[in-house]
Computed example of a mutant assay.
Amino acid sequence: MEVKIADFGLSKILCRTLDACNSYVGTCAYMSPERFDPDTYGGNYNGYLSDIWSLRLTLIELYMGHFPLLPPGQKPDWATLICAICFGEPPSLPEGVSEEFRSFMECYLQKESKKRWTAAQLLTHLFISKDLRISVS
Rank of each mutant, 00 (worst) to 15 (best):
K75I: 13
E61F: 08
C86F: 03
P38I: 01
A29E: 15
P68H: 06
Q74H: 06
Y41S: 01
T27D: 13
T80Y: 00
S92F: 00
C28D: 09
P72D: 08
P72F: 06
Y24H: 01
F67W: 07
L57Q: 09
P94G: 10
C83R: 14
M64S: 11
C28Q: 02
C86Y: 01
A79K: 14
S50W: 00
S32V: 08
T40I: 10
M31T: 02
P71I: 02
A79C: 00
K75Q: 13
E95C: 05
M64F: 04
G47F: 03
G88S: 08
S54G: 15
L55N: 02
E34K: 05
G47L: 03
P71A: 13
Y24V: 10
C83N: 14
I85M: 02
T40Q: 11
P33W: 07
D51V: 01
L69H: 02
P76F: 00
P33H: 07
Y30T: 06
L93H: 04
Y45I: 13
A79F: 05
V97C: 13
W53G: 07
Y41V: 03
G42S: 04
L81T: 14
L59H: 07
Q74V: 15
S98L: 06
P94V: 06
T27C: 12
I82C: 10
T80S: 15
P76S: 11
S98F: 06
